[in-house]
């Protein structure tokens, strides 16, 4: 599918999810895994929009692309915000997940859901761009 660029604002999240849904459908990925992929992309995109572009002007953009590579659907999110590797965030562990709601920490859940929802998540910085890639193997149920 062709790459798309959208304003880095919360209203773009729905469009990003639609893009992922279409790409997953085209690759023949089942609904349950397609949902998890949408969720993963949504979570990382949300972080980019909330934290990445703080103090930057209205021209902030987030791009999404998809390709089939080595038997996997690969979705790539690209942004020019400040460097941020989501894998460095502290994610909840089993003990945290068992805590009652009134004792739960607010942070970390989004990244946790993102990374758990795909076969492979990768982040790298290239020049002034952040590249987040999400891989889901095709035909692997």
């Amino acid at each position: 599918m062709e790459k798309r660029s959208l304003p880095a604002e919360l209203d773009s999240l729905a469009e990003l999810r639609r893009y992922v849904k279409e790409a997953a459908g085209g690759a023949g990925i089942d609904d349950a895994r397609a949902y998890k992929l949408q969720l993963a992309v949504d979570e990382i995109a949300t972080n980019i929009i909330f934290y990445g572009y703080k103090d930057v002007g209205a021209s902030a953009v987030i791009s999404i692309g998809s390709q089939i590579r080595d038997g996997a659907l690969v979705i790539t999110l690209e942004d020019c915000a400040q460097p941020f590797d989501p894998r460095t965030m502290r994610m909840p562990d089993a003990k945290d997940l068992a805590k009652p709601l009134e004792e739960r920490a607010i942070g970390g859940l989004g990244i946790f859901l993102a990374i758990r929802g795909v076969d492979r998540f990768d982040y790298r910085r290239e020049g002034d761009r952040n590249l987040s890639t999400f891989e889901v193997r095709i035909g692997h149920d």
Binding site: R17, Y35, Q38, L39, D42, E43, T46, P100, L101, E102, R104, I106, L109, G110, F112, L113
Partner: peptide, 15 residues
């Protein structure tokens, strides 16, 4: 669809 933002509101509701 429900993202972690929705989960956070559930945590907020409890608290």
């Amino acid at each position: 669809f429900m993202a972690s933002a929705g989960l956070r509101v559930l945590i907020f509701a409890r608290q």
